[in-house]
Design a protein around this nucleic acid. Structure first.
Lengths: 259, 259
DNA sequence: ACAATAACTTCCATAATATGGATTTATTGG
DNA sequence: CCAATAAATCCATATTATGGAAGTTATTGT
């Protein structure tokens, strides 16, 4: 009994893209793709051919190996802005990075993940787990991500948690408890020490839509020494200020940018 | 008589993505998508639903309008590196931007287009036509793009020119002549004054694979005043040097990065 | 506020399309 | 150079996408 999606071929094609995206930079062989996606080899061949034709996949050098093509980069750059969010938040990030001297991230929600939309480092020290722009973590792993999760409405929160529990555990981390999330909601920020990486402190505040939906978060990454408890609250306060400014920009823009 | 692709549904789905990518940031309505892609409306609906499920499309705010989703940004960031090219070229770009004081671009070929992979500006003055990272122009429009075109093998060059002629004319620019391209091949760089934008000078040198295929170009954008003929050749010489260094890195990396 | 219109969603019989087993051709490795 | 493995191609089959029609839900105009 197959699933009743009505667009099997498209979904399979997208699955191929995601499989190749997850592969190492030497690329993937057709057979591997077929196996990874649970497709017969001729089927994979057809899908790959179509994706290649469109520039979504390219051959590695002169081999048969396949890798993501630049078309995705092109499209990705177009969608990157998330409807003005990145642009609206950029100045805030710059200010925060400069003021704190640490590394600031803009994380936005995408389905069950949070994606790093932008990043400003005052001095290139830290590469956090979600460090690189374009990187994604399951909602619930990492401060920015967890802040967004915490501020979702009850029902959605449960759904996301259920969906992500296994993924997070598989990555060797633990899943935030209900109490953790409630605490984050209460004080309006998330603070993590030594959670994803030893010696690294992370903290984040949410960016909410006028309707009270969390769409993104501003996160900070720093070493434990640089961000002691004493300084933390100051920094968080500044971050909240900036988050509010971004919210104001979002609210005032006539095209709802909110997701 | 339909085309014999063997993956109609996938191709249609990709067409939907590209249509939405070309749309303004307020997003697109289902009907518009259907019309733009030549699909019946229920068909478009099914494809859109699948793409939305995968995070490739999102609803704008709480409306029904559709816009590119962050999944594309995610995948795009993964593929952005073009197999090490961007990383290999980054230091060269930084050096060139610092040394020249102008704006440097890394353009890479993607099918019939050249995509801006990276950009370094010494001082934020110019926004060239292909300025933003992720932007694409048809091969034959803009210096970096034209340099790549010029260095393609005869047959491929003709094919690309035929494919792009209309597109370039439609954008209100003219298509490089055979003589233009031959000249670029001969002197190893492309120089354009007042071509795409008045008062702006562009120039570019190709980056070739060991097998003599152009995969990318380093381009410079500056105002006419900043880049007079006298300075031009110096700058070009430096750019050629850097291009050669990048070629060396590419050649020495065991995974062929070459496209 | 209500009607009229347009956009979106769902349904389903039909046929066009994707499917995958079998085969040929190319590539890789010993 | 030959064996083994992977990729490309073929094609009869039935699964899957298709699009007309009808039912809902927004949007627009009066």
């Amino acid at each position: 009994m197959k699933k009743q999606s009505g667009a099997q071929a498209l979904e399979r094609g997208l699955a191929v893209l995601e499989a190749v995206a997850a592969a190492p930079p030497e690329g993937m062989r057709l057979t591997e793709i077929a196996e990874m996606c649970g497709l017969e080899q001729p089927t994979a061949h057809r899908l790959v051919a179509a994706l290649e034709r469109g520039g979504y996949l390219t051959r590695v050098g002169d081999t048969k190996r396949l890798r993501l093509g630049l078309k995705l980069f092109q499209l990705g750059a177009t969608g990157a802005d998330a409807g003005g969010l990145a642009a609206a938040a950029r100045p805030a990030l710059v200010r925060l990075a400069a003021a704190s001297g640490d590394c600031m991230f803009l994380m936005a929600r995408s389905g069950f993940d949070a994606v790093c939309l932008d990043r400003q480092d005052a001095n290139y020290t830290i590469r956090s787990l979600t460090g690189h722009v374009g990187g994604a973590t399951p909602l619930g792993l990492g401060p920015g991500s967890t802040t967004i999760l915490a501020h979702l409405p009850e029902a959605e929160r449960a759904e996301v948690l259920a969906a992500n529990r296994e993924r997070i555990l598989a990555l060797g981390h633990d899943v935030p408890s209900k109490a953790d999330l409630a605490a984050i909601r209460k004080c309006g920020f998330c603070h993590e020490v030594n959670r994803s990486v030893a010696g690294i402190v992370g903290a984040a505040v949410p960016i909410m839509t006028p309707k009270g939906h969390p769409i993104a978060a501003i996160a900070i990454g720093a070493t434990e020494a640089r961000l002691p408890e004493t300084r933390l609250l100051d920094v968080i306060a500044t971050m909240k200020d900036e988050a509010r400014k971004i919210e104001a920009i979002i609210a005032s823009s006539r095209d709802g940018l909110l997701s």
